[in-house]
């Protein structure tokens, strides 16, 4: 009992320290908020002309007024969360490289507590960063429900991305090679996640690939909740219909995200039993 309590306190202090670190780095907090807007402008102008938004609306079962910007908005928030949370893997490799982890590992703290604390922190920090983008969106949508209701799923998406980031971080000793993952793993996975164009409009083989892409379920979850809460404001009776959209509903996407989170955490815990974090 005493031990469980101590471990809880330790997870809490790791969380606290990570959030403090994030907040201390205000410059990065700011640049990360502007980044998705830059993406949006490029994608918005480029793809907005090609993609038929009416079709998208029907896929999402969303009956309100829609344009391309509205469609990619949740994807953009999701992308922000993925980038920020995944970057916890980067910090983890950096900590290994600089030897910051050594005193932590020497302390009477089980390794899985350290990892779990960091994964939870990645989720919360990623979601907070996503929330900042979302609060800016308030200026455009003037809709509180969207901002509030998407926050919990942003945490789930953040935890998922952080778990994946830290999973890879365990194998890397050097930051440069870890960061190259961003280009041939994370960005392709984001493009195949449906954040910027609906997967349903792509060839069958691409759809097949995205079924194994955890970020597809992550982005799908954020989109579903985003549009559900947007419709909610307008018509409460819509809720049932929305929960049972074509493809997956909100609950199914959440379930798939939890599945991937558990999968990656299990993989990590098996690996750290056999591999020292050095």
């Amino acid at each position: 009992m005493e031990k469980i309590k101590k471990n809880f306190i330790k997870i809490f202090i790791i969380l606290y320290i990570e959030i403090l670190r994030w907040w201390r780095n205000k410059f990065k907090v700011f640049t990360t908020v502007t980044q998705p807007f830059i993406w949006t402008i490029f994608f918005g102008i480029g793809l907005g002309k090609i993609i038929d938004v009416k079709e998208i609306a029907s896929i999402l079962n969303y009956s309100g007024p829609i344009n391309y910007l509205l469609f990619i908005f949740p994807g953009m928030i999701g992308t922000t969360v993925i980038f920020v949370s995944f970057s916890f893997g980067h910090s983890f490799v950096e900590e290994k490289e600089k030897g910051f982890l050594k005193p932590i590992i020497l302390s009477p703290t089980p390794t899985w507590i350290i990892i779990l604390g960091k994964i939870l922190a990645s989720g919360i920090v990623g979601a907070l960063q996503g929330l900042l983008v979302n609060i800016l969106s308030f200026i455009y949508f003037k809709d509180v429900a969207v901002t509030i209701l998407t926050f919990p799923v942003l945490i789930i998406l953040g935890i998922l991305s952080g778990a994946i980031g830290i999973f890879f971080a365990i194998f890397f000793k050097n930051i440069g090679s870890y960061d190259s993952l961003l280009f041939f793993l994370v960005i392709p996975a984001i493009l195949l996640s449906g954040a910027y164009f609906p997967i349903e409009l792509t060839p069958i083989w691409m759809i097949k690939i995205s079924q194994f892409n955890p970020f597809y379920y992550g982005i799908e979850m954020v989109k579903k909740v985003f549009f559900a809460s947007l419709s909610l404001e307008k018509d409460l009776s819509n809720l049932k219909e929305i929960l049972a959209t074509k493809g997956f509903g909100v609950l199914e996407t959440i379930f798939f995200n939890l599945f991937f989170i558990i999968l990656f955490i299990t993989l990590i815990s098996v690996i750290i039993k056999h591999k020292s974090l050095e």
């Binding site: 320290i17 403090l20 030897g99 910051f100 005193p103 009477p108």
Partner: peptide
């Protein structure tokens, strides 16, 4: 153990570093 490289967290204060360590201990 005092390792060859300094391994305090440069973004945190002296007190925060020490407090974090104490909780882990």
């Amino acid at each position: 153990v005092v390792f060859q490289e300094v391994n305090l967290d440069s973004k945190l204060t002296v007190k925060e570093n020490l407090f974090f360590h104490s909780i882990l201990y």
